[in-house]
Design a protein around this nucleic acid. Structure first.
Lengths: 334, 334
DNA sequence: TTGTATGCGTTATCAA
DNA sequence: TTGATAACGCATACAA
């Protein structure tokens, strides 16, 4: 057996093995003009040595990594897998690889991520922040790779955003329930100090006023998780008996449905339940969950496209795209 | 407003702004000894210019990126979120950032990923491959950053692995069912040309022989998804009436349960259902799914630890860790 | 303690 | 078409 290659071959190793210059190796590797013999010799040497270019050195030189990052708060939330799939499709078609990273629920982590993203990790970032503050907006503006926000930040921040229309989504849910004769509608929200929580709270408040809804209970869950949904359900049915409950996302809704089952209440016969996000979980839950489709897939797609466009041309004025909701009716509502 | 910084500050810019050498800037940034005044001046300049080190250049120099990659086949499979969380916890405690990337079900994509991983993207890789062939093993062996496989590859491959004991897991499920008097046990597997599919097939074959199970139907689903589970369920109950069904993962099990509901069959009264993976979905499904815990969290943890250890010392002999299963009993079984 | 100079592996400019 | 060489931005050995 040969001695083990203690260090991996570099372009210089390939060059000397092929008996040509490093410049020629680089050219062949990048498909620039070269004689057939040159191509042959270089490829032979590359093959022999098992040479693989160093992406760090390459991107240091050319200034691009051909990597894009998607940052989400919680990988356990199925809405992000929908978004992830959509983003992946767009960016990979454009020749980028996508890496996903998770920030956790705290805004400081998001700021740290954006700050660290500057310089070298990727050519761009799609971030879906749970909480937004001035620090985060500042870090996004100062970031020297393009960032697009999948979520809502103030227009004056001057960043590309693509967001859902939660208030409209809540309205769709309310209308559907009222049409089915369910007028004692409770609302289980996530934390209102989050971007989606605030938007959905506004949506429910608007709807309450507009449709003159009678109060039937409103809960602010600890977070947007299944466990929080169960806890919220427990609290909710202790003090009221709504005929329907709208939840701020699908995980909360499924948690609430479990609690309903524990109380022996039939869905949808006794209580109707509507989730939001229309994630894969809505289809998988039992009964299948009627859910407000906030356009996660389209938001992901548009966000990715915005990012690619901005990488292409950093001077374009920031766009703010709003994706309109639809209602996916399943069997958790009559 | 100031003119826009057309190019981002480099360490040289900071140095000249602070009136010191680049070496001094580098030292201060890396916490090496310096006078208080030096530290002060450098930090001031860094702050003023909004300087952020270029991670590519840095890692090109020091040879490390302080990034680790986790590659999974399908982000929509909840077993991976369990694993992801565990890996994340271990590597971030060790000072690395974790990026997640998805390979898709094809082995060629996995090979491409491992090949591309060589040189620069990360300091190590945990990969959970659905399909394994010689090419993949070759690419792992040739990869010049450490790779640990969360899954089963032949011992002769000589790579670090941490895998589940699926046959034992299937046996646990069978024993539980038999103890409850369910002896007409059907089996819904994923594709048997995958690593987990093959292992679970073997497990069920072993159990069939060992417990002398009567044939009650066995289906090979198209993949490990919810939709495939539904399709398999439809096929299964067309031709047989098992009193229990074991599914190769939770998504398949939930799909099968939906089909049972469509047939008007009660779970667990008429048909018991057991999944595998004990993912978050098992808890969220209704009824909550009895599931074989194949130790995804522990596998993730151990895989991450193995990876860190190998980064520390590349000469250690490859380890093959096996994590033993347990059964999480919920309400889908009597 | 600080500064100068070299090199990490690559691409791009320029001559030949 | 090909080769020598200068950057890319940073860390460090060595000199001061």
């Amino acid at each position: 057996m040969q001695e083990l290659a203690v260090s991996r071959p570099t372009i210089a190793g390939v060059a000397s093995a092929a008996g040509v210059s490093v410049a020629s190796v680089s050219r062949v590797l990048n498909g620039l003009p070269a004689t057939a013999e040159m191509v042959e010799r270089v490829q032979r040497a590359v093959e022999d040595l098992g040479y693989v270019p160093d992406s760090r050195a390459r991107s240091l030189k050319v200034g691009r990594t051909f990597q894009l990052t998607l940052a989400v708060a919680d990988v356990g939330n199925p809405v992000y897998v929908t978004m992830m799939r959509a983003v992946e499709e767009v960016v990979s078609a454009a020749g980028y690889r996508l890496v996903v990273t998770t920030t956790g629920p705290e805004v400081v982590d998001e700021v740290a991520l954006v700050r660290g993203m500057a310089r070298g990790y990727a050519d761009g970032l799609v971030i879906s922040p749970l909480r937004v503050d001035d620090d985060l907006i500042k870090s996004i503006r100062e970031c020297d790779v393009p960032v697009v926000v999948a979520g809502n930040v103030p227009a004056k921040a001057g960043v590309d955003t693509v967001r859902a229309n939660s208030p409209k989504g809540v309205a769709l849910a309310v209308e559907h329930l009222l049409a089915k004769g369910r007028d004692r509608i409770a609302f289980v929200n996530g934390p209102v100090d989050t971007v989606p929580g605030a938007a959905r709270a506004k949506g429910f408040a608007d709807a309450t006023k507009h449709y003159n809804l009678k109060a039937a209970g409103a809960i602010e869950a600890a977070d947007f998780t299944f466990a929080a949904g169960r806890a919220a359900g427990k609290q909710l049915f202790k003090k009221s008996r709504p005929s329907a409950v709208i939840c701020a996302n699908d995980l909360l809704a499924v948690g609430v449905m479990h609690e309903l089952a524990a109380y022996g209440l039939q869905v949808p016969a006794e209580v109707a339940v509507i989730g939001m996000d229309d994630s894969e979980l809505a289809e998988q839950s039992f009964p299948p969950l009627t859910s407000v489709n906030l356009g996660s897939a389209e938001r992901g797609r548009r966000a990715a496209e915005l990012l690619l466009a901005r990488i292409e041309d950093d001077t374009r004025t920031p766009r703010r795209i709003v994706v309109q909701p639809t209602l996916s009716v399943r069997r958790s509502t009559p």
